[in-house]
Each structure stands twice: as structure tokens, then as C-alpha cells.
């Protein structure tokens, strides 16, 4: 599973990364979590409100930090 966190390094971006890692750990999924901080790359995904979460090339979340529980559901859906 290829997981990308889109965001220029703001507080919410770090919060999303933490919650995503926690959700991945909870699911026992192995994934590469990569931070994308380049603005052109972020915009290239069609994301205008940071932070964003991209899994296997698909934007799942943009502009908010979901709870770990919601992320668990989203990631389980994307991985399964």
C-alpha cells in the first residue's frame, strides 16, 4: 500500500500523519508513508485544502483531519 500525506508541514499535516500511522498500525498493514510537501505536487493531485491523504494514487481525504477510527475504516476499505 502506498500512502502519501499531502501538506506543507503545518500542524494539521503532522496530526494527519500521526493518525494515519496509528490507523495503519491498528490494521496491521504494511505501508510506505511518504510526506509530499512540494506545492506543485500537492496541487497536481487536485488537492487545494491541506492536509490531504492519498492512498495508491487516490485522494481519500482533503482539508480535514479525520479521527483514527474513521481513517481505519477508510484505509481498510482502500486496502481490501
Amino acid at each position: 500500500m502506498d500512502v502519501k500525506i499531502l501538506g506543507p508541514g503545518c500542524r494539521n499535516c503532522r496530526a494527519l500523519e500521526k493518525a494515519t500511522r496509528a490507523a495503519l498500525d491498528g490494521l496491521g498493514l504494511a505501508a510506505d508513508v511518504e510526506e509530499v510537501t512540494d506545492y506543485a505536487a500537492i496541487a497536481g493531485y487536485g488537492v487545494m485544502s491541506t492536509p490531504g491523504l492519498v492512498v495508491d494514487g487516490r485522494v481519500l481525504v482533503s482539508g480535514r483531519v479525520p479521527t483514527t477510527r474513521e481513517l481505519t475504516e477508510l484505509l481498510a476499505g482502500a486496502g481490501g
Binding site: A40, G44, G46, V59, V61, S62
Partner: peptide, 16 residues
């Protein structure tokens, strides 16, 4: 220049 060259590939996701 990179702004005008940026290609919007992804499908926009409405956060709300």
C-alpha cells in the same frame, strides 16, 4: 512559471 505548467491530474475531492 511552474504554476501555469502544473497539470491537475487527480480527481478533485470535496472535503465537506
Amino acid at each position: 512559471p511552474f504554476v501555469l505548467e502544473t497539470r491537475l491530474d487527480g480527481e478533485p475531492v470535496d472535503p465537506g
